[in-house]
Each structure stands twice: as structure tokens, then as C-alpha cells.
């Protein structure tokens, strides 16, 4: 660990930063994760950009949460979980359920904007939802 030099468009940037500060990639990844978490919390907490009148819109918060989530997810999976240095079979293994996860999020999560009290009939075998609709 630590001896391996990372290459590639994104991992290469991490490696370059590590070389510049004279530490390993894990340390750089740790700093990046900490920074983006702070950024994520700040984006939600502040209604305007601190020191300005610029409104932080709902769309902007969404964008920040998604982009930061992707960056943090990449940092953890690629470096801390070693997917970047390990044989590709592990990346394939990790990506295998993504299709099912996407199907669940789209097919179930976003299929009914009215929420669980209006699930399709095949999904509600005589269930009484009065406890959630009252």
C-alpha cells in the first residue's frame, strides 16, 4: 500500500496532488472527503452564499448534493476500497448490482409521485393504509 502510483484522468489528479504535498493518495483522498463534506453541509445550511446576496437555490443544492456525493463515493470506492489498484473483477463485482439499484430507484422510488397510499393494486394486497392517510 502507498507504493502504487495511480494513473488515469481522475486518479491521476489525486496522485499529482499527493506528489505535490509529499503524502500518499490516501491522505489526499481523506482531505478531499473532509473538504467536500464541509461544502455539502454549508450548501444546505446557508440560504445565501456567505458574504454575498446570492441566493442558493433548490436546484443548486440538488446539484451540490449529487456532485459531492459522486466525488465522495468515487474517493471511498476507488482509493479506500482499493478498486483502483485491484484487479478489474472487483470493480465489475461492485458495479453488478448498480443496474438493480437503478431499477429499484426508478421503478419503485419514482414511479408513484403520490406516495405509498396510492400504490398499484398488485402491490397492496388488502392493506389498510388508514394509519398513514389519517
Amino acid at each position: 500500500m502507498g507504493e502504487h502510483k495511480y494513473t488515469g484522468p481522475i486518479a491521476g489528479i489525486f496522485q499529482k496532488m499527493a506528489d505535490i504535498i509529499g503524502k500518499d493518495v490516501y491522505y489526499v483522498n481523506f482531505l478531499i472527503l473532509m473538504f467536500f463534506t464541509l461544502f455539502e453541509v454549508a450548501a444546505v445550511f446557508f440560504e445565501t452564499v456567505p458574504g454575498t446576496d446570492i441566493q442558493i437555490t433548490r436546484g443548486a443544492v440538488w446539484a451540490v448534493l449529487i456532485v459531492v456525493g459522486i466525488i465522495k463515493g468515487y474517493g471511498i470506492a476507488a482509493f479506500f476500497m482499493h478498486l483502483k489498484g485491484d484487479p478489474f473483477i472487483y470493480t465489475r463485482t461492485a458495479l453488478f448490482p448498480v443496474l438493480f439499484v437503478a431499477l429499484m430507484l426508478w421503478g419503485i422510488g419514482l414511479s408513484n409521485p403520490a406516495g405509498i397510499d396510492q400504490l398499484p393494486a398488485w402491490c397492496t394486497p388488502n392493506w389498510d393504509y388508514s394509519y398513514v392517510t389519517e
Partner: peptide, 16 residues
């Protein structure tokens, strides 16, 4: 998959 089931349930409720 376990956590995906939580998220899909949450999304379904949240959108309503």
C-alpha cells in the same frame, strides 16, 4: 441491495 430498498422506499414516499 438492502440499502437500495430503503432509498427506493424513501423516494416513493418522499415524492408524495
Amino acid at each position: 441491495m438492502v440499502f437500495a430498498s430503503f432509498f427506493s422506499s424513501y423516494l416513493r414516499m418522499r415524492t408524495g
